[in-house]
Amino acid sequence: MAMSVSSTASKSLELVCPAGNLPSLKTAVDNGADSVYIGFRDDTNARHFPGLNFDVKTAVQGVQYAHARGRRVFVALNTFPQPAGWPRWERAVDQAAELGVDAVIAADISVLDYAHHQHPNLPLHLSVQGSATNYEAIRFYYEQFGIRRVVLPRVLSLPQVQHVLDNSPVDVEVFGFGGLCIMVEGRCLLSSYVTGESPNMCGVCSPAKAVRWEETPNGLETRLGGLLIDRYAPGEPAGYPTLCKGRFTVADQTYYAIEEPTSLNTLELLPQLQAMGIAAIKIEGRQRSPAYVTQVTKVWRAAIDACRRNPSAYTPKPEWLKELGKVSEGQQTTLGAYHRTWQ
């Protein structure tokens, strides 16, 4: 049923922070995350990067650490298994249940179906990778698998988010800060088109092994799968060659044809998100360092608390924006699709 704004306005927004390893999980908890989301060390999650993520031992430690302090742990199992890899996903779901985590974040129908039937008491969240941008899709996952929460793709404007919220049978989580996917998550194959590996199939986008940095007489060039993604003049800050964030040519123009290297930052929308009845704000960045997690968690904890105490007097403090600016891609931030003109 529709959530009424008045009943949820006083409820605090849950702060969901990323952890790519145990130190990140601990610092997220120490600095005020209500929940932390993690992944296992394989392609069952959408941040399958070398050296990242949790094995059973560190996952047990992480869950203990968080639970001892009254915080929750979610496990992302949000890629799309192909038949040959299915046993890994089955094992990952079982493992999450055995760990006693507070939710599994999944996208694929077979994964949701397995978890729903094998572990009926394990709460399920629909991952952003599930591409649910409208309430009919959310209802589908609720009716079929009893999901308790949906994470919305970063493509909706604020009024659209409100409309989804008014008609959603489950809690809604939105992205508040971090790397920005310009495409609907779960529906972007650009990475595999160029490198053979995509978020859906392999849990990676623009994978590091396909990246090449080259100093040339034309400047520093970044390549992905051999394709020139960007070229930087001397002194120009160079960024990681994420496929959609390069400078390309369309007809007579060379520009950031898809998206600038920029991060999402919704700190200024916090009172509106809170008043709308959003349940949780997600911070992107399991691939980032513990220092990033510390910084971002601190700022968002302070902001959420300030907004809860007095939403009408809330404005983002300059020092918060400065801190977040330091850890943002390209040192720039945007309101993304929440702000209609960005679209």
């Binding site: 970063r154 909706l156 404007s157 310009i182 609907v184 972007c188 194959l189 650009l190 088109y193 044809a257």
Partner: peptide, 16 residues
């Protein structure tokens, strides 16, 4: 290959 909230054709023409 992909869908977005953003219209890339409008972006090319510098239009919202």
């Amino acid at each position: 290959l992909a869908y977005s909230a953003r219209c890339f054709t409008a972006r090319y023409h510098n239009l919202p």
